[in-house]
Design a protein around this nucleic acid. Structure first.
Length: 568
RNA sequence: CGGGGCGUAGCGCAGCCUGGUAGCGCGUUUGCUUGGGGUGCAAAAGGUCGAGAGUUCAAAUCUCUCCGCCCCGACCA
């Protein structure tokens, strides 16, 4: 392919709308163009790299025994009513009506369609296990699309679904996908880390996310450098020693605290540290008020709390609810005397001598002894874990990092099998529920993550496996017939050798071509110019190295092919 | 949805406060020039100044409403 015949435009300046390096580079290098918020066109170079990623995914899925299928993006909403997710995921789905006024959705994921399809096809244990996958466009009405392809309204996902006769068998299917994911990200040139993750609305018992560590990542990743424990911050746990509050044995004492509500205001007012206080939060859990206590210097992890309560909807209670539940306006809630369920973080077990709200306006109480003064429903791990907290496995200090979620594997169990009555006949003639797993890779997100993790100040450093072209050939003197002849010869011979080669044949000065070659970032750069030829050949340089070699023309193809082969 | 910022040529921006019929750089086209890390010169094309309403003799500029984009939060496989 030649630049002069290609729809590729590079930009000198960073696009105004881009914030992170990979987004800027994808636009500057001419890989993508924005249509609207969260909607992008893949330009020729972008689509070539995308197809490379897709092909790696496809090869590894096939190798793991999964079968490729392709399901409709447009789906009847009725399917989603059956699983109950029209209500729980409804906000995030694009909806439309067909001419018969039937409600349709654009699929954000395909558990429903897959399970419905498998119901009709699989009826015997002899057909199991069965894992299907597709690489397909997904639609999600994201609240805030951002960072280019990282969080888009329309994106390409590889989603796979496994069906098994038992939980033990499902574990094997899960492990096969887990192993395939490790290989996929490695082949894409990514350092991706499996971490324990929250299952969220998709349901299921257990899941792992594959995280690409990057400062621009949207997720917090808790990492133990000693024992290897790693978890999404949404799920991460910590080890806590029995609380050692200073028990003064004193009785509760009211203190007037007019307009002192927040922990910051309280620490200033009482002149003591945040952990002297117990923060009391009132939540509405599926409409019922509940209280939750965390140490004053900690934040509640709503994901953990929601999982503990087992509710569908959990949100901070509104002011009237708080007034009704505690008898006091916002800012003065406390555990003493509450009649609603009160959950507390495990670190508060045995807490004494603390300060809490008094459930009266403008009053706090001190010398609170939780065991003595309050009725706690349960002590659980409920706070957001951060740097310095103790690892739940080994007790050593944890670290908080940022990560990009490029893949997620779930053990679903029978959640969808039950909704769709997906059963099979056992050897004994019993009808039993299939045990499912589901497995996603954000293909477009993975592509951008590759750039986020492989770039420098000058541009992209493509891993050879996903580079739009393995070799970029710079024709420095397009008016020099001898130079052109060398380029023609190299281009043809490299193509014959199966190498993807891109020729910059523009009528531009060398500096422009060098800059653009660095920006676009193909792994091998071959410069063909009159000066180089006079020195004895063409110049071969790797994008990730400063070293440049002059290679005689006759030896050039073998040299370049050797370099490309060594990369993959 | 709450807070903040922005919308002027394909891209990046100035002009707006203090109203007077739109400018710079890049890119594009043409000619010359240059020819190994974003050459130089000259000419040219390209704009309903996000949309609508209002104030005014006159609005990119002031007022109001709406729309879009970006960031933080909330929220979200």
């Amino acid at each position: 392919m030649r630049w002069s015949r290609t729809l590729i435009n590079t930009l000198r300046d960073d696009p105004q709308e881009a914030e992170i390096a990979s987004h800027k580079l994808m636009v500057r290098a001419g890989l993508i163009r924005k249509l609207s918020g969260g909607l992008y066109t893949f330009m020729p170079f972008g689509v070539r790299a995308l197809h490379k990623v897709s092909q790696i995914v496809r090869e590894e899925m096939n190798r793991a025994g999964a079968q490729e299928i392709l399901m409709p993006a447009l789906q009847p909403a009725e399917l989603w009513e059956r699983s109950g997710r029209l209500a729980t995921m409804g906000q995030g789905m694009f909806r439309l009506k067909d001419r018969a006024d039937r409600l349709m959705v654009l699929g954000p994921t395909h558990e429903e369609v897959t399970t419905e399809m498998i119901c009709g096809e699989v009826s015997s244990y002899r057909q199991l296990p069965c894992t299907v996958y597709q690489i397909q466009t997904k639609f999600r009405d994201e609240i805030r699309p951002r960072f280019g392809l990282m969080r888009a309204k329309e994106f390409i996902m590889k989603d796979a679904y496994s069906f098994d006769v038992s939980y033990e068998a499902a574990d094997a299917s899960y492990q096969a996908m887990y192993d395939a994911y490790v290989r996929i990200f490695k082949r894409c040139g990514l350092m991706a880390r499996p971490v324990e993750a929250d299952t969220g609305d998709i349901g299921g018992k257990w899941s792992h996310e594959f995280m690409v560590l990057a400062d621009s990542g949207e997720d917090g990743v808790i990492d133990c450098p000693v024992c290897g424990y790693a978890a999404n911050q949404e799920r991460a746990e910590r080890k806590v020693d029995a609380s050692s509050g200073s028990s003064d044995g004193a009785a509760i004492e009211e203190v007037a605290t007019p307009n002192v509500r927040t922990i910051d205001e309280l620490t200033a007012f009482f002149k003591c540290a945040g952990d002297c206080f117990i923060k009391t939060l009132i939540y509405s859990a599926d409409g019922n008020p509940v209280a939750v206590l965390v140490p004053g210097d900690r934040d509640l992890n709503e994901h953990k709390f929601k999982r503990l309560l087992g509710v569908k909807k959990l949100e901070l209670a509104d002011d009237p609810t708080i007034l009704a539940a505690t008898g006091a306006p916002v800012g003065f809630a406390g555990p003493v005397g509450l009649t609603i369920p009160v959950y507390a973080d495990q670190a508060l077990k045995g807490a004494t001598g603390r300060i809490t709200g008094a459930n009266k306006a403008d009053i706090h109480i001190k010398h609170v002894d939780l065991a003595r003064d309050a009725n706690i429903t349960a002590f659980e791990d409920l706070v957001i874990v951060g740097t310095g907290d103790a690892c739940p496995k080994c007790g050593k200090p944890l670290q908080l990092k940022r990560g990009i979620e490029v893949g997620h594997v779930f053990k679903l169990g029978t959640k969808y099998s039950e909704s769709f009555d997906a059963r099979f006949l056992t050897a004994e003639g019993q009808r039993e529920l299939m045990v499912m797993g589901c497995y996603g890779i954000g293909v477009t997100r993975t592509l951008q993550a590759v750039i986020e993790q492989n770039h420098d100040a000058d541009g992209i450093l493509w891993p050879a496996s996903v580079a739009p072209f393995a070799v970029t050939l710079l024709l420095l003197d397009p008016k020099d017939a001898a130079v052109c002849a060398v380029v023609d010869k190299l281009e043809k011979e490299l193509q014959d050798a199966g190498i993807d080669v891109f020729v910059d044949d523009r009528e531009d000065r060398p500096g422009v071509k060098f800059k653009d070659a660095d920006l676009i970032g193909c792994p091998v750069r071959v410069v063909v110019g009159a000066k180089g030829l006079a020195k004895g050949g063409v110049e071969v340089k790797m994008r990730n190295s400063k070293d440049m070699a002059i290679v005689p023309i006759d030896a050039a193809v073998a040299d370049i092919v050797g370099r490309v082969k060594a990369l993959v």
